[in-house]
Structures are given as C-alpha cells and as structure tokens.
Amino acid sequence: MHPAPSVIIFTVLTGLGFGFITWLGIGMPEVMGKSAFITYFGAFALSVIGLISSTFHLGNPKNAYKSFSQWRTSWLSREGWLAVATLLVTGLFAFLLIFFDKNLQILGYISSVLAVLTVIATSMIYIQIKAVPRWSHRSVMFYFITVSLAGGAILAGQHKPALVLTILAVIVQIVTWKIGDGRFKESGSTMETATGLGSIGKVRLFESPHTGDNYLLKEMAYVVGRRHANKLRALTLLFMGVIPAVLLLLSNGNTVALVLTAISHLIGAFASRWLFFAEAEHVVGLYYGKR
C-alpha cells in the first residue's frame, strides 16, 4: 500500500496522543492546573494534528462530516465517534483539572477507556481490510495498542511502564512482522484464484490493462525492496525499541533522557508505520502480476 504521509502522520500522532491521554486519564501522572494545561495541551495537540492530517488524505473533505453517520458498520466512522468522544470527555476532565482543580476521576477513567477504544478502532480500520492480508489479523490491534501505550507512557514520564511497554511493543512488533510475512500466503489468494484460471495452469500477467499508470497501482501496488524493508525494520527496532529501552534503563526518569526517548520512539514509530503501509500488499496486485 502507498505509504501516504498523511495517513502515517495521522496514525502515529493520534496513537501517541491517545496513548498519552490513556495514561493521563488514570492519573499517571497526576496533573493539576498549569501542569495539567501543558500535558493536556500536548496530548490534544498530538491527537488533533493527527486527526487533521487524516483529512489531507480525503479527496472530497467537504463531506468529511458525513463520516460520523455509519457507525453501525464502518470502523472509520466508529473511530471518528470514539475520537470525538475521547476528546470531549478528556476535554471536560482536563477543563475541570485545569480551571477548577477538580479531579473527577471517573471521567478520567472513561477518557482512558475511550482513548484505548479509539486506538483499537483505528487498528480495526486496517484489520477489517481482508484484501490486505498483512493487516487483516488480530496482532495488528496489539501492535497499535502497544505502540500507542508505550509512546503515551514515555510522554507521560511513566518510567517503568514505559520500559515494560517499549519492550512489549517491540516484541509485538516483531511478532506482527512475523505473522504478517505469512499472511498473504495464508489468505489463499493467488493469481490463480484471482483469475479463476488455476485449473488450467500457472498464471502470469502478459499485458497490463493499460500501459499508463492508474489509481490502483499508485495506491495499492506500492512495492518496497526487501533490502530497504529490512533496513527500516532494523531502524524501527533501534529507535522504537533499543534506544528508548537503554535510555529508560540508564536515565531513571530525567527529563532530558525522556525527551530523547520520546524523540527516538517517535522516529521508530514513524519508521514502523511507514513499513506498516509499504509492506502491506493488496490482493489487487495479483491482477497486475505484482507478487
């Protein structure tokens, strides 16, 4: 799949923002007044920038408001509702914290739950796409959650949970890759099933429908070289896993280290997310002999 910057920014930043919110909601750390303002501003900023970025992906954004209508079937719609709900509840919670020094903890818990649900909903947008077998697996949900919570924990300065979650996220990431690498095969879709010609023999593309380019090829037949992908996987592990873990282990909660950890995590998360798209193969590629 085409690794569109808007979608990568969207999923990484909202993931991070909502992860942050999750920790804040359960009072880790406990913030009040000005510190609450700063932290919540940060969490909101990340989430909202992410959400806004997602609209750059839209061909016809003037209808974006309609995306709330199909919550019964569409995970994108659900994600929209959940994101809004999270932001509203969190906003109210933060508002009380900042301006009234009032901690209505129940709201905080709800906000955390909603934040996690939003991240789950985001992951479900991908998981439900059977046509992209790499995505269409439960592991993707854990991947989104762990990355989100790990990033949130780092931002929230939750030193130990951050360390544990970072390691967990890396394990989940590796497992997701492992599973993902076999998903296309498991899906059972081949050029033979795509064309139904398997009973005659082995199928290969002779001529593309058009010598010109098209939307499908641009959007869904992105190919990333094996070597390039391996390099990025290594970078992901390094920046999302090794560096944050080492920093967290060594630093014991000092702010500079946390900032560095956060930056490293973010770089790693972007690399990871780029790969999440770039490595995902859509079965439509079979019709173009891409595989």
Binding site: L58, G59, N60, N63, K130, Y215, L216, E219, M220, Y287
Partner: peptide
C-alpha cells in the same frame, strides 16, 4: 457522490480493484 468524502477506504476494501478515486473530483 454527493455523500462521498473520498477517503479511499472502500477501494482498499475491494479485493478486485473495482473502485478508483477520481483525481479531479476527489470522489470514488
């Protein structure tokens, strides 16, 4: 088309490549 926001998700969901987002109008 009056309701489409051009998110492209449906094209992702279609295994057959039967949907194309029109680049001029931005609708599916």
């Amino acid at each position: 088309e009056d309701a489409c926001m051009g998110c492209g998700l449906c094209a992702w969901a279609c295994p057959y490549g039967a949907r194309e987002l029109d680049s001029d109008s931005g609708v599916m």
